[in-house]
């Protein structure tokens, strides 16, 4: 409460001195003064309070082994993070990167950078897998955490992570952080002859890395007339793009006509059926509804139609 307690008493004293004239001000500091809302039940809190701290507070009872984690990871995580945690496309690299923090291109992974294993457990539980957050059970979360620690060579392959042994995991970069000490630079507001004009070297932008189409005349007229299956596009972006944008895990890349010609030939009904019910093909596996079971059959079909439109 810091100052508020002090302030509270100060105001209270004042109020008493003023013979209750300011009593309402004083009690404005009282817990429950406004009487709004109701006391949250333990059950309500338990359902939402899933956070975990570095000291282990918040970890639920449970356990998971590296070997169980391997299967879960390969099915639910590898499509983005890579089989060995190396990261697909621009998705985060999870493993490796040791001794790269001073490199020109550091790799900030769980092993090389993250200071606490609790962060991995907490984030996996609350936000992963990307398209189906909070779908993992407690034991699955332990197992996947164990496996990612294993990929970083922080535990052995027979390790079983539990609530009890959680704090025994040592993170290599635990001491790599320090509290904000800024301002760390001190410029002076020099006004005249602050540097030698001859010393100025102008370094231009690297061409081609930033979008510039909108700076060109007439750009905004482009593509205005194009009709797009908006619903399908929306579903696609939210649930399918993760794999189909980059051709992850054998998924046919959207927009790559070659990959789609034969598939389109089977007919939209077949494609929609496979997408809805799941399909094991030569190139890879399509999980039912791409793993997002909250989608309706119509949603998935619209997304398939969008992908076909984009890939012809």
């Amino acid at each position: 409460m810091y100052n508020s307690v002090k302030k509270y008493f100060k105001v209270l004293v004042l109020a008493t001195a003023a013979q209750g004239l300011f009593a309402s001000t004083a009690y404005a500091q009282d817990p429950g003064h406004y009487g709004l809302g109701r006391i949250a039940t333990e059950e309500e809190i338990a359902g939402w309070d899933i956070d975990v701290r570095p000291d282990g507070l918040g970890l639920p009872e449970g356990s998971g082994s590296v070997s169980v984690g391997e299967g879960l990871y390969e099915a639910q995580c590898a499509s983005c993070h890579g089989l060995f945690g190396e990261g697909e496309g621009r998705w985060p690299i999870l493993a490796g990167g040791y001794d790269t923090l001073t490199d020109d291109r550091p790799q900030k992974t769980v092993g090389s950078y993250w200071p606490y294993a609790s962060t991995l457990w907490d984030y996996t539980r609350r936000a992963m897998p990307f398209t189906a957050p909070q779908s993992l059970t407690v034991d699955e979360t332990y197992a996947i955490t164990a496996y990612v620690l294993y990929l970083n060579e922080l535990v052995e392959d027979d390790f079983v992570l539990t609530k009890e042994n959680f704090l025994t995991v040592e993170m290599p970069n635990a001491d790599g952080f320090f509290h904000d000490d800024r301002p760390d630079v001190k410029n002076k507001a020099c006004m005249k002859d602050c540097k030698d004009p001859a010393s100025i070297k102008v370094i231009s932008t690297i061409a081609g890395v930033s979008p510039t189409e909108h700076l060109e005349e007439g750009a905004e007229e482009e593509s205005a007339g194009e009709a797009v299956n908006e619903h399908g596009k929306q579903v696609y972006k939210q649930s399918c793009a993760v794999c189909h944008d980059h051709g992850v895990a054998g998924a046919p890349k959207t927009g790559e006509a070659d990959a789609w010609t034969d598939r389109i030939a089977t007919g939209i009904d077949t494609l929609a059926k496979r997408a809805n019910e799941g399909y094991m093909g030569d190139a890879g596996m399509m999980p039912p509804k791409g793993g997002n079971m909250s989608l309706s059959d119509e949603d998935v079909t619209a997304a398939v139609e969008y992908m076909v439109e984009q890939s012809q």
């Binding site: 956070d51 701290r53 570095p54 000291d55 769980v110 993250w114 962060t119 907490d122 984030y123 936000a127």
Partner: peptide, 10 residues
């Protein structure tokens, strides 16, 4: 104490 979650560590 702080929670040190993903968006304040990684």
């Amino acid at each position: 104490m702080p929670w040190m979650h993903r968006e304040e560590t990684s």
